Simulated assay, not measured.
Amino acid sequence: MTSFAAPRISCEIIEPRSEDVARIFNIQRYSLNDGQGIRTVVFFKGCPHSCPWCANPESLSPRIETVRRESKCLHCTPCLRDADECPSGAFERIGRDISLDDLEREVMKDDIFFRTSGGGVTLSGGEVLMQAPFAVRFLQRLRRWDVHCAIETAGDAPASRLLSLAKECDEVLFDLKIMDVRLAREIINMNLPRVLANLRLLVEQGINVIPRLPLIPGFTMNVDNTQYALVLLSSLGIKQIHLLPFHQYGEPKYNLLGLPWSMKDVAVPSSQEVDTVRKMAECAGFKVTVGG
């Protein structure tokens, strides 16, 4: 297990300012990796965890942040680090507040793609459970349009909060990471017993849960961690999983935010290594999708 001193981030749920306003940092269209069909993914800002492999470090803080792109900066003084005043666009604001009405209008621009591909909308992050009251109301609106709805979550929140949101979904993409209680707490600041209890609850409630296993060398990509997850999921009657191999795509974002990228020297899993995990899961009776 790779040594990593995770920053201490509170695992308390951050209450949104209003159930009619959410803080997001991106809306990604034409996604094929976050649920069935062509999807529009809404990324909510703020996350209680500290996964060193996170590919979206801009999602971690719930605050709106300003970053500077050196290649665009004129090194002038008029903007005073104000993204609205920057003449070259070097200063960029990450995160914005958006209302229920505006977000509904934004995602429904893609309705034709949802209906022709069997796709829909996925709420991701960060961690969408940190803004669950807004998310519940938003999905209720989408369901009136008969849009296929999904969330991606690590499930580390009070059960009532997770269940209220999951009941509005056609599927829940449920991330399972480090399966050792102590290491999950120390490395990624996760309450694993609560996560596993919530997973069981969703299954008992008949929610369509699709577990996702990130394959992270030195953290999750080992026989013991994988076997623990597979045995647990098999005991719950779950028969399909997604495998998410580690990649280095997030490194430029860390540089932009001025954050250290501790995974710089970690090798991306080879196709043979990923195939080994895939075969392990298939031998255990799972239908496996690589890449989600």
Rank of each mutant, 00 (worst) to 15 (best):
E70H: 12
S71T: 14
L74Q: 12
L74V: 10
T77A: 14
P78W: 01
C79H: 00
L80R: 15
R81P: 00
D82A: 04
A83F: 14
A83Q: 11
E85N: 08
C86R: 04
P87C: 02
S88C: 01
S88K: 02
G89P: 06
A90S: 06
F91P: 07
F91L: 13
E92N: 09
G95E: 04
G95I: 00
R96D: 06
R96Y: 10
R96F: 04
L100A: 03
L100G: 06
R105V: 14
R105N: 15
M108L: 15
D110I: 12
D110L: 12
F113H: 12
F114R: 04
G118S: 01
G119Y: 07
G120H: 02
G120S: 01
V121Y: 09
S124R: 02
G125L: 01
G126T: 10
M130V: 09
M130C: 09
A132F: 06
A132V: 04
A132Q: 12
A132K: 08
P133D: 03
P133L: 02
F134V: 11
A135S: 11
R137T: 06
L139C: 02
Q140L: 07
L142H: 10
L142D: 05
R144A: 13
R144Y: 11
W145R: 15
V147H: 05
V147K: 02
H148C: 08
C149P: 07
A150Y: 07
I151C: 10
I151M: 10
E152Y: 05
S160G: 15
L162P: 05
L163A: 13
K167E: 15
C169K: 02
V172K: 07
V172L: 10
V172F: 09
V172A: 06
F174P: 08
I178N: 05
M179E: 03
R182L: 14
L183K: 15
L183D: 14
A184H: 09
E186W: 02
N191E: 09
N191C: 06
R194D: 12
L196D: 08
N198E: 05
N198A: 07
L199I: 06
L199R: 03
R200D: 10
R200I: 08
R200C: 11
L202P: 05
V203E: 01
E204W: 09
